[in-house]
Every structure is written in C-alpha cells, then in structure tokens.
Amino acid sequence: MNVNVTVNAQGLAAALKNNLAQKRSTLNILEHVLLIATESPAELRVISRDFSQEIEVVIAAERVEQAGSVTCHAEKLQAAVTGLAGPATLSTTGSPDSEQFKTVLQQGRRRFQILSMPADIFPKGQEMGQAKSPVLDPEELAKAIATVQYAVAVHDARPALLGVHLNEHDVVATDGHRAACALIDADFRPITIPRDSLKNLIAALMEEGAELRYSDSAIEVVHACGRYRSQLLDVKYVDYKRVMRIPVSGVTATLDAAHIAPALSRLRSFVPVGTQMLGCEINENLLSLTAGTESDTKDEAEAQCSGSWPKVHLNLSYLNDAMNAVKGEFTWLNTGTQNPQFLWTGNQEVVHVLMPIRM
C-alpha cells in the first residue's frame, strides 16, 4: 500500500536512532524498518524488530496525504534524514511487486530514493499471550534492573544465568561467582529477561507514562512515545534465595563506595592478569587493598569495623562492578576467608554477594 506522509525530520531521526534493524543480514528484510502512516490520529509509527525484540516509536505527522504502510532500508533512511530540520515528506513510488518500488524522502530540493519492500513481508513480532499488569513504579523497576545487571553472565552453558530474573519482590542477577538482588514494591510471578534486552527495557521504563505488562513468553512496556517488547527466556532460574540469605554471624564494616573506587582504579594495573586477585583486610578503621599476594603493592580506604576482620581475596573486577552499583555508603559482612562476602545498602534493599578466590 502506498504512503504519503509529512513529518518533522528531527522527530524521524530520533525515532530511527535506536532501531533494531541489522546493518548487514542475509535476509534483506531484517535491514528494514516498518513505517505505518495513519490519518486518525495523524501519525507515523516506526517499527523495528530483531529475533527477540521489538521497538515502536510514534511521531506526530504534520500531514497525511495517503495512509498506508511500507518497509524501508533503515540505514539509508537514517543517513538521509541526519542533520535535517523542519518538515520532510515520505512517499512511495512504483508498485510493491516491482523492483522499482521505492520510498522517497524529500525536503525542498533534497531528494533521497530508498529501495523498499511491501509491509506484509516484514517479520511478525513476538506474541504476548495472556498478559498480566503488575502494580509498580516503572522507574523503580528500571533502577533495580540497572543496579543488578552487572552480575548477569556473559557466556554460560546455563541459559538461566543469561538474564535478570524477576520473582515476587526480587530483581536478581548472578553468573555463579557473584550475585545481586534488589527489592521493589511489586509482585511478579517468575520471569527472566534476556541480557540483550535490558538496555532497551530500562530506557522504555524511564519514558513518560510507561506501563508494563508481561506474560509467560514476553514483556512489554507501552509509553507516551511508543512501545517496547521483548521475549523472555524459557528457563527455570537457579535457587538464588539460598545464596542471598545473609548470615547472622560475621564481622561487619561500614564503608563508602566512593572512597574505594579510586583505589581499585589505581590497583588495576598491578593485580595478576589471570586471577585479578585483590586482598582485602581491615585494620584500625582502614581497608587495605593488596594487589595479588604482594604486600608492598597496596592502597587503602576509610572503614569502620566492628571486630577482627579476616583477610579475604576477591576478584578486583567483580568488586569494582559492585562499587559502581552501590554508589555510596554500604555495609560489608565478612563471615570468613572462604565464605561468600555480603554487601548491602539501606535496610538490605540491595544485596551484593561476591565469592572469594580460594587460596
């Protein structure tokens, strides 16, 4: 179906900025975005999909001469509209069955012809199925996911670890060597969001008017500027509650992540490359950080400790990731050199668990 619609060029450029179309693909249609122009309301919907995600951005149209839909090569359309300001017209020429079927972007004397394909061959999106809408603050969920996502596994034979897990009030991530759990005011039935979807999901949750719903197969956020949908991992998550249970015994210390982060940065070049081993010990209200097992290469940070602190060896990169997530004062519970280390903020609203390097 042919299309003729006039929109603000800057709005179109913004709608294309984070599209999911692939740069190069053996299937040409995966390099395209779907454009849908409607008269009532007068708007242009820009939809992009990959194998697991879907982003829809809605922009107001200044004029719709002909409503319809067409797919357009995303990279070329984005290049054509870059740097333009003011109204620009998108129109199709030729028959959808012809090799000369094109979308034309025109603004004054500027004219760009972009090969296009019929809308009906654009891949179908992920089905939602029977969805549930939890009562929650979308921004709170976005912040919780952003806080724990550092602990998601990058490559692992266990698919369950390749995403952030939501269950009841918990937002959890773990790669088997570390874990992070944030509490939110919501009640989810168990779902796991793929690692690759987290960035776009967080962005959608932060949009004005965001509303979330989810099913057994997909999660979706509808907001004032459009919609985002992602499929979920079809896996059973690990028993994280057993790991996250904070022991009642051990030595606690109060520290500030802002004081530790600079020391970790300075020591990064001195720790053993293979193990990233970092010794952590508190004496006289100072946290001593030792690169590897060498006591003559160390840094320190302020600490307030409740008792005798057993020296523990941690992965510097893992501790640094936790410090970036904490951002402020926190409590550190050390229950022994071979035991998990527990770090939490507030009244255990966010808990981080780091497994020590066994000596």
Rank of each mutant, 00 (worst) to 15 (best):
K124D: 15
K124T: 11
K124H: 12
G125T: 12
Q126V: 07
Q126G: 01
E127P: 10
E127V: 06
E127L: 11
M128P: 00
M128K: 04
M128I: 09
Q130N: 13
Q130E: 06
A131E: 05
A131P: 05
K132E: 07
K132C: 01
S133A: 12
S133T: 03
P134C: 01
P134T: 14
D137Y: 11
D137F: 12
D137L: 13
P138W: 05
E139L: 13
E140F: 02
E140C: 09
A142F: 10
K143Q: 07
K143R: 13
A144D: 07
I145Y: 00
I145L: 01
T147P: 04
V148T: 14
Q149A: 08
Q149R: 12
Q149S: 08
Q149K: 15
Y150D: 07
A151D: 03
A151M: 05
V152A: 03
V152I: 12
V154P: 10
V154C: 02
V154N: 14
V154D: 06
V154R: 14
H155Q: 11
H155K: 15
H155R: 14
H155Y: 04
H155A: 13
A157S: 15
R158E: 15
P159Y: 09
A160N: 02
A160R: 02
A160K: 01
L162T: 06
L162W: 06
G163N: 03
V164L: 14
V164E: 14
H165N: 09
H165P: 00
H165A: 06
E168S: 15
E168N: 11
E168G: 02
H169A: 10
H169V: 06
V171R: 00
V171S: 04
V172R: 09
A173V: 10
A173F: 07
T174M: 05
T174V: 00
T174P: 00
D175R: 05
D175A: 12
D175L: 10
G176T: 04
G176H: 10
H177R: 13
H177A: 11
R178D: 11
R178I: 02
R178F: 03
R178S: 14
A179T: 05
A179I: 06
A180M: 11
A180E: 12
A182P: 01
A182S: 14
L183I: 15
I184R: 01
I184L: 04
D185T: 12
D185G: 04
D185F: 05
F188P: 08
R189G: 10
R189W: 15
P190Q: 04
P190S: 00
P190H: 01
P190K: 00
P190L: 05
I191V: 15
T192P: 08
T192A: 08
I193C: 07
I193Q: 02
I193E: 04
P194G: 03
P194S: 06
P194Q: 11
R195C: 09
R195Q: 15
D196M: 11
D196Q: 10
S197V: 12
S197N: 01
S197Y: 02
L198Q: 00
L198C: 02
K199L: 08
K199S: 13
